[in-house]
Structures are given as C-alpha cells and as structure tokens.
C-alpha cells in the first residue's frame, strides 16, 4: 500500500486557507536531510519528507483530514474550563500566554476532537496539537480527552487518540497533574464497554501524557522517529551524567523495548487504524451497549 492511493485531498481547502497567504513558490528544507521540498508537495505528503521519510510535526486539522474517510468529519464542541485557576505568572502572565497561543493558532487549546468515519465506520478521533503551547496537558486538554471518551461511549464508536505533548501544563499546577487520573477514568469506561481505544504516539510525547492515557491503549502505534518517554532526554542526561544510547526514546527504540506494538508510516496510518478496528470488533457494536 502506498500513500498516493490513500491520500485524499481535503474537500474544502479554501475554507481552511483563509489566512494562508504563503506565496506559491515557497520551498521548505527538511530538518533531517536538508532536501528542499515545494511546500504544496509537502502538504500533499502530509509533511513527510520524500527524501528521507522524516515525519515533521503536523496540526490537528491535517490529522483529521488524513485520517477520516475522504477528509470528512465534524468537530465536537468542547466544554469551557476555568482559565488560569492559579493566576499563574512566570516571566509573563499565563493568561497572556494563553491569549497569544489562541490568537496565533485560532484554536481554544491543544486538543481537538472530531467525529466521522474511518474505514467506513464511525470513529471518534482526538488530536493533541504540539503547536499549541507544546500540546501541554492542562484542564482544557484533559476535559477534551474526557469529552472524546464520552463521545465514543455515546456513539458506540472506537476512540483514537493522537497524542503529542511535552507534558503537563505547568502553569495550571496540580490541576494539570489531576488530568492524568481524570483521563484514565474515561479510558477505563471505554475498556469496560468493550470499545477499542487506540493510541497514536507522535513526536514528541512525554511526561504526564505518556504516563496516563498515552500508555493505556489497547494498541500503541508510534510514528517513525517520534520521541516518546516519561522524562525528557535532557533531564535524564542531567541526572545520570552519562551519554544516552543511540536512538534512545525514539519510536523504534520503544518498539524494541516492548512499549509500542508497531511503528507505522503516516501514510499508512488510516488503513492500519481501520484494519485494527475491524479485527477487534468485526464492525459489531459491543454487547450491552445502547443502539
């Protein structure tokens, strides 16, 4: 299977490109191999370098477009949460950081949730966007994961969690830590209902996200080269004062150490997810679930 067959151009590209005033002649260099890639090509390739297969970071919209059948989906409304409950201020006020991140991205927070079909069957997909404050898990992101789980329960559909985050959102203090048990509760409810919960670990996924819903999937899929771990490599290096092994905490390393089931190319992701859901459920809704 190759990506050309899989790739379906988003249906309403113009709607999403309102603010995109990038000139058509822009080229982007791959950070890994240095190859210059025409930016429209790069978009069509879902930001995978054609030269070296390096998987660059992509946003929630690109994920939804690529994963849902024909790029058709419906965003699920996410509940409002308390903003800045600690009135946190470091070198800058958290309230301002949040405002800036929202203005820059046009998003409310790091996790977005959508409903649509995947492989011809309803699925809920939650995507954590690293571009929004490092994808960090705060109250909004936690509530979004809970909402995604509830949508899966209501729709009797599998939940796919595309994770990416540096970790907890420090500016929300203990309340961000509490998103770990909160999201775990929703994973338990899916498990008890017999609905598949599949985790896609993307670059980078570390800290509280990996130490909760990121590592509680029925199946763990990682994107090639993704950094996945508990502690960040710099923290480990500073603690043990030793050189870290080659490829440490990369997707392939985790596969070798038994922490993920597979490393899957971005272009093969939709087909892989659809096949897993089909094999797990045979397309049937779990018993005892509402119709």
């Amino acid at each position: 299977m190759n990506w050309i067959k899989n790739f379906v151009r988003p249906r309403f590209p113009s709607v999403f490109r309102e603010h995109d005033d990038t000139p058509d002649n822009l080229w982007e260099a791959c950070k890994k191999c240095g190859e210059m890639i025409f930016h429209r090509d790069l978009e069509n390739l879902q930001k995978v370098c054609p030269g070296c297969d390096h998987h660059m970071r992509i946003g929630a919209k690109e994920r939804f477009d690529a994963l849902f059948d024909k790029g058709v989906y419906e965003l699920i409304d996410l509940p409002d949460v308390a903003h800045d409950p600690l009135k946190f201020k470091d070198q800058k006020k958290y309230a301002e950081r949040l405002k800036d991140a929202r203005a820059k991205s046009g998003d409310k927070d790091a996790v977005k949730v959508a409903k649509g079909d995947l492989g011809g069957r309803p699925a809920i997909i939650a995507v954590q966007d690293f571009h929004f404050m490092g994808g960090s898990l705060g109250m909004a992101a936690g509530e979004a994961v809970v909402t995604a789980g509830q949508a899966a329960l209501e729709n009797n559909a599998p939940l796919i969690m595309v994770a990416a985050a540096g970790g907890a959102r420090m500016q929300e203090g203990i309340l961000s830590l509490m998103q770990m048990p909160r999201t775990t509760v929703i994973v338990q409810q899916l498990r008890e209902r017999g609905l598949p919960y599949l985790v896609v670990l993307t670059d980078p996924t570390t800290g509280g996200v990996t130490a909760s819903y990121g590592m509680l999937g029925d199946v763990h899929i990682a994107e090639p080269g993704a950094l996945i771990g508990f502690a960040g490599p710099r923290v480990i290096q500073d603690t043990i004062k030793e050189k870290l092994p080659e490829g440490f905490q990369r997707a392939e390393y985790l596969l070798e150490h038994g922490m993920v089931d597979m490393v899957v190319h971005r272009h093969d992701m939709p087909a892989t997810l659809a096949r897993l859901i089909d094999l797990l459920t045979g397309g049937r809704a779990p018993e005892g679930a509402p119709a």
């Binding site: 770990m180 048990p181 775990t184 509760v185 994973v187 338990q188 990996t210 130490a211 909760s212 819903y213 990121g214 590592m215 509680l216 771990g229 508990f230 502690a231 923290v235 480990i236 603690t239 043990i240 030793e242 870290l244 092994p245 440490f248 905490q249 150490h257 038994g258 922490m259």
Partner: peptide, 26 residues
C-alpha cells in the same frame, strides 16, 4: 518524583505509572 534514568525509560516508566494510577482507580 519517579526516577529519570535510562533503564527506567527502557522498562516503561510511563506505562508503569499509568497502570498504577489505573489500578488505584479500579
């Protein structure tokens, strides 16, 4: 906090913490 080391990561520090919290809630 949990120990940040090479072996701890290799043996799944985050999975162990996630499962332990999971167990607490069950």
């Amino acid at each position: 906090g949990a120990y940040p080391g090479i072996g701890a990561e290799e043996r799944g520090q985050s999975e162990a913490i996630a499962r332990c919290t999971d167990k607490c809630l069950q």
